[in-house]
Write a protein that binds this DNA or RNA. Sequence first.
RNA 1: CGAGAUGUAGCGCAGUUUGGUAGCGCGCUUGGUUCGGGACCAAGAGGUCAUGGGUUCGAAUCCCCUCAUCUCGACCA
Length: 572
Amino acid sequence: MRISKLVGSRTKEQPADAVLKSHALLMRAGFIKSVANGIWSFGMPAKRIATKIENIIREEMDSIDGQECSFPVVMPKELWDESGRYNSIGEELVRFTDRGNRFMVLGMTHEEAAVHFARDNVTSHHQLPFMIYQIQTKFRDEARSRGGLIRVREFTMKDAYSFHLTHEDLEEYYQKVYDAYVRIFKRVGLKNVVAVKSDSGMMGGKISHEFMFLSDAGEDKIVLCNSCGYKANMEVADAVVPVNLSVEPSKMQEIFTGDAKEIDEVAEALKITKDKTIKAVVYNIKGESYVVVCFIRGDYEVNEAKLKKVVRREVVPANLGSESEIKAGNIGPINLVLPKDSIVVYDRTLKGANGMVIGTNKAGYHTTGVSVERDIKVKEFVDIAKVKQGQHCSCCGAPLDVVAGVEVGNIFQLGTKYTQSMGMTVSNKDGVAVNPIMGCYGIGVGRALASIAEETSDEKGLNWPLQVAPWIVYLCPLRYDDPVIKEKSDELYSKLTSAGIETLYDDRESSPGVKFADCDLMGIPIRVVISQRLIASDSIEIRLRASGITQTVSNSECLERIKKLMVINDMS
RNA sequence: CGAGAUGUAGCGCAGUUUGGUAGCGCGCUUGGUUCGGGACCAAGAGGUCAUGGGUUCGAAUCCCCUCAUCUCGACCA
């Protein structure tokens, strides 16, 4: 490719809107352009990277007997009615009507399409297990996209669906996919990826893992133990419960705390630390008038995913306006009046605590000296607390780390949710019709691309690993206006391309600094320079983007040298 | 969905307070001199100042509506 014709301009200036490195650099290099919120065009370089990532995924999926298919982007409502998801999914599912007023949806995931495709074609257990997958555009109307390609509305995703007769078989295959994912992320050049246990949520499945690229660019929180290797998504993470027994029981006493409502203000007003307080967090249940009140130690936060599992309902943070019966700021567990059927939940951080401060359920007052065992009738303590940095690992006792990550892939033991609701059965050995058990497995291609950019880039720009680089060689003649240089470098360009080495040819008559800066910015792994100085000794210069190592070799050796570098990616 | 910020040339910005019909840098075009880490000189091209409405003799500037983009939040009572 001649750079003079490449569409996508490079800029010196940082785009004003970009916060993340990957976002800013992909834009500065002219690789991507925003069309609308969360919707992007890819230029040739970005498309080539995406294609290479896809090909690596494709190879690994094929290696575990995946069958590549293609499911539609637009599907009829009826298909999604079968699974019940036409109604159960919120606004992120785009619904519209076609010219004949038929209701349609834009595919945001393809369980329905996969089951639809498989159910009439597969009727016998002899045909199980199998896995079908596609690499295709998805659209999710996210409430808030952000960070360039990290969180978008339209994206390319590899999604795979496997079908099994038994749970054992699913579990065995699940492990194969897990291993394939580890290979995929390694091959695309992502180093800092971990697989963490995640929340299976309301999906009814048993086991799922998220593949997390560890980076501050991420919006998910992960709990890691550096000692025993325990790792889990924040939503399901467990830790040793802190004990708060150091204080002897004392007498309860009402104290005027005035306008102090938030737990920080209460602790400040009473000159105590937050772990000596019990705070109330109130949630509404979708479509119900009653509430869920959570009592938890003041220095902990409620983990909504855990709470949802405890109360087995969808919870949303309550909006306690002035009309509400419950007065925010002084809610306490004693003499609390709640709407009918309301649920009160006590976190296990409160078990056995003495000398605690609670709300008195009247404006301006809190109560001190509360002993949980003595003063509050608690039937059951549950785990609804978010794990905190430094809390101890429940496996080995070492302090835990809480880090941010980008979810680049997930794998999921689905069960029979879709085969059951959509009526897919196969005959088992006994001739009985049974629902196959499914697994599903996703990887976001664009998100992986952005993650690689995030991880490998430096102050000069992008820096692509060889396996996914848009071009391997940046051919950089200095003084392209010199006929001798032009002839020699044109010659080398055709030599490289006919040898199958992907080359971006800087055929501009620009000054060296401009060319070097663009090469660095675009992150092409190998730079080959031809100059008047080098031509005198019939040699060229090779420089590696990643390490900066530079070497002069004779023109005749050039091709061999580059081929070697493509294998070992190392000058030594 | 809530809060905040922003919207002026392809990109990055100034001009808005105090109204007088647009400017800087980068990039682009042409010519010339340079050129192994973002060169210089000269001459150019390029903007219905997000949209709609209002105030005014006159609006990028003041007022109102709408739209778009970005950030934070959607959780601690």
